[in-house]
Nucleic acid binder design. Structure first.
Lengths: 345, 345
DNA sequence: CATCTGCATCGAAACGTTTCGACAACACGG
DNA sequence: CCGTGTTGTCGAAACGTTTCGATGCAGATG
């Protein structure tokens, strides 16, 4: 509750002197500075945030707008936390936007100067928030890759590249028949482009390499039948020797449970590679090698771009930053078993 | 970028008239009001947030402080979103705090008037953030139940009550032998009181009712062996007829997988009741009846308390609001099977 | 000694609002 | 026609900072 005036009075100096001591923008004698700092500590003075940014100053807040309000994927909080962490490292706080109409919310906080910049999460292929970025009057970064991104920067993993890398890796291990385990997420989020981006590029690359790709059926979560999946794609003579997982960790976990019970060991009998997932925050029944999404990387890059735009006035509109996928070996990949009479059942 | 002065000029009135039209705090003739509103729309005027709260006004921001930065439980984002939703409904935005030192962060945003109030998430039994609430100078609500809560309000599910209700429900269905499936979360979060609160009250209530409670071993996630669990607690002659799950959904899912493969049907062979979890945002292989945590309820109550404190100056320090647990029937409970030669293996 | 330079400090303006007090215009009852 | 009240509007103060320009003073330079 103490203001700068109280500090000034207590230290016996003028208000401006206090301000200069605190900001270091003009030289102040040590003697005076010490008296001022003393008073600051004694009175527990913290400058008022609003008053501070009254002279054309930054609010040091960035707004973060998750997309759909139905949050089923737990990775969302990873993005929240990573964004907040990076923001804090740059001296910014993070404002969470969750209104009915996301665009309205963004407009409000951006135009009222409550926030200096905007990060969009859960960006869909046709994303209204991204399309209207020009109206915000503040720099804007998408984590994701919307079609219309003329007025914002985009940061994402290069999922097309991931598809090719996955195909390469499996082919190099001799896998010729692969099954793609897809999440039911597709049903509820048809627009979330990255899953399709990966899938298409993986299938194209695999076929280039003479591999056979099967795709699991898309069903409701609750109806997913791991037994049926295993019976259909892994047990037959010409079943797959590798699973590429694009599904929710728990779906994969169920499959692993069935494999384990049936004595179809990973990776001896079947290799598993999970792509575009985030398993390390997730208790799997078995270590699964992975080309994960990387919230830390994307958030960090997003924040660099954003802070550059805010503080150095870089124009980041239209910029696209795709990062090369990483691979984490958790031992679930090995050479394809020899073509044999297939299965154990 | 247009300011109130521009609007005033465009409408041909004084600055104060514009302000009164917008706030409705004094009567203004319709004619003038229309002209002003016209100008506001034409210029796309949005008042500057900082300037607005310069005269002793509220910032209409509440700060939300998650506890541990390692976020493995996905329910965190449910709390984020629910808090933000409720806050927005009351006209508040939400600021996400994630600094190294949570107390510092809270002090900073509270004392600088950046936020009008504070919500603490992931509150532990001995929570420093709660203990120091007096210093914030703003009202503070915990979601959780710390020991030292003299200076903040607490909102939580009544986990002791949940333990009793769970015991009652199982006993009424004739279950006399129950196994408690505990999460490994305990290992990493020894202080997170609610799991123990439930456990202790459940065990006490169950023993009161002449039930036998077994407890699964606590191991690392990756080492959790669902087969061993099933063999040890469910297959033997005197095995449990019901599982009370307190563990991570994916651990439970693994168990369900083993049960399903082994032909031990739920609920015919074994009943399952999950407590203190949040399965509906989580794709389980099978519907599991549940006494869930209820982020929406807690966040809503927390926000009511907080807004009451902020806007009506209620003193909410020391207040405790425990909500009665809810039960969701998803069909995984049935009468205990008759004592028989036990198991299928 | 007269200037100049640089340092330390101060007073006041500025930021964009809200709100208080004033006042003119008008209506109404006496 | 005078008080009294109401309505609509305005000017200016206030909020708590930052920062510009000015000033006083000490020491260096001519």
């Amino acid at each position: 509750m103490a203001g700068i005036k109280d500090v000034a009075k207590a230290a016996g100096v003028s208000v401006s002197t206090v301000s200069y001591v605190l900001s270091g923008k003009r030289s102040i004698s040590n003697k005076t500075a010490d008296r001022v700092l003393d008073a600051v500590n004694r009175l527990n003075y913290i400058p008022d945030a609003s008053a501070r940014k009254m002279r054309g100053h930054l609010s040091h807040v960035i707004a973060i707008a998750p997309g759909r309000r139905e949050v089923r994927h737990s990775s969302l909080s990873a993005y929240f936390m990573q964004t907040a962490l990076r923001a804090k490292a740059g001296g910014y706080d993070v404002l969470l936007l969750t209104g009915e109409d996301p665009v309205d919310d963004i407009l409000r906080v951006a135009q009222s100067n409550l926030a200096d910049g905007v990060v969009l999460l859960d960006v869909e292929e046709n994303d209204l928030r991204a399309a209207r970025a020009a109206e915000y009057g503040k720099p804007c970064v998408c984590i994701g890759f919307p079609k219309d991104h003329d007025d914002c920067a985009c940061v994402d993993v290069d999922f097309a590249c991931m598809g090719r890398l996955a195909a390469d890796r499996l082919r190099d291990l001799g896998h010729e028949r692969v099954v793609l385990l897809r999440s039911v997420e597709h049903l509820s989020e048809p627009m979330s482009g990255y899953l399709n981006l990966f899938r298409d590029s993986f299938i194209a690359a695999a076929e280039d390499r003479q591999m056979v790709v099967m795709e699991s059926e898309l069903t409701e979560y609750r109806n997913f039948d791991a037994n049926a999946f295993v019976s259909k794609y892994l047990i037959p003579k010409n079943g797959a020797t590798a699973i590429v997982n694009q599904a929710d960790p728990s779906v994969l976990n169920t499959v692993l449970g069935v494999l384990s019970v049936s004595g179809m060991d990973v990776p001896q009998y079947v290799s598993v590679l999970s792509c575009g997932t985030l398993l390390d925050s997730y208790p799997m029944s078995k270590g699964i090698s992975e080309m994960p999404i990387t919230p830390a990387v994307q958030c960090s890059r997003a924040m660099s771009l954003l802070l550059g735009a805010i503080e150095e006035h870089h124009d980041i509109r239209g910029e696209v930053d795709l990062s090369v996928p990483t691979f984490i070996d958790r031992g679930s990949l090995s050479r394809a078993r020899e073509a044999q009479k297939g299965g154990c059942g």
